[in-house]
Simulated scan of single mutants.
Amino acid sequence: MSIGNSPEDDRPSDDLHATPPPAVEQAPTPADDRPSIGRVLRQGRVDAGMTVDEVSTSTRVRVPIVHAIEEDDFSRCGGDVYARGHIRTIARAVGVDPEPLLAQFADEHGGRPAPTPAAPLFEAERIRSDPRRPNWTAAMVAAIVAVIGFVGFTAFGGSDDGGAKQQAAEGATPATGKPKPTQTPKPTKPTDPKPDPTDSAIAAAPRDKVTVKINAADGRSWISAKDHNGRIMFDGLLEQGESKTFQDNQKVDLVLGDAGAIQLYVNGKQVDNEFEPGQVERLTYTKGDPEVG
């Protein structure tokens, strides 16, 4: 009894050693010959005649980020979302169409980017500070400090002045001990070697000298008095109610700025005059009876 062949034995021997069909070869993908995004933006900036600083000022994108994007380094943008925004802003600033660049960025970085946390956004989008812009906050703080200091100084100084004024108004507090004896001031020597005679002296004026008393009875007046040698005996303002007396061996020359406000006594006698207010008079008196020179 013979054993029959299995179905596998029925296949031709050539089929057992047949080679599998060759795999279909795919056509090689042509390399992407497009220039990089950074190169396009840099070339656009050069063609527009702009510097990196000018691009940064125009777009509010910091200078280091502009440099990084032109080198195709988008890691400093803070994420794909903000990289897209920087590409679009810079492209428009240098006159380049941003849409092809955005499409190329999507192809190279996997399409729609994932959301980025807020911290890198703040760091990436921070606007550069302008060094020429005045610091108004610091100026305001300095002004407030100055005002507070001035108010405090005025308050403390005012309180001290107020206490001094109050003490002066109320009078000094009486001392509990024995009062100190008051010292009588010593009479000072007059600067003029010739002492001014009193009214009684004018009444008995010596006949061998000329004595002139000026009284500013009706107002103040500027006066000047000289002796017979031309030396100035007095030159100044005589307030209302004040008087001056001058004496010389020969004569006294007077200049009265407001003769109408002056009363004159010469050699013990009052001189009647009709001087007008504001009238300037030049007078000379000698010995004996009042005589106007």
Rank of each mutant, 00 (worst) to 15 (best):
P98S: 03
G162Q: 07
P98Y: 00
L102T: 03
V63A: 07
I69R: 04
G78T: 06
F153A: 15
D73M: 09
V141S: 11
G79K: 01
H67P: 03
G157A: 12
A103M: 12
V81Q: 13
I90P: 06
G111Y: 09
A164H: 11
P120R: 06
G157M: 09
P64F: 00
F150D: 04
K180F: 12
A106D: 01
R92F: 13
A119Q: 14
A146N: 05
A146W: 03
P179D: 06
T173Y: 04
T154S: 14
D107M: 14
V63S: 06
I144A: 15
V145C: 05
V81T: 13
R133E: 15
R126W: 06
P100Q: 06
E125G: 00
T182I: 11
A106V: 02
G110L: 03
P120W: 00
G152A: 12
T57L: 07
R133I: 02
D107S: 14
H67A: 01
A119W: 11
R133F: 10
G163P: 01
A169K: 11
D160Y: 15
V81M: 13
S129F: 11
Q167S: 15
P174L: 05
R112P: 12
G149K: 01
T154M: 14
R92T: 14
P185A: 05
D97P: 02
V145F: 00
T137E: 10
D107A: 15
G78I: 00
I65L: 04
G152R: 02
A118V: 05
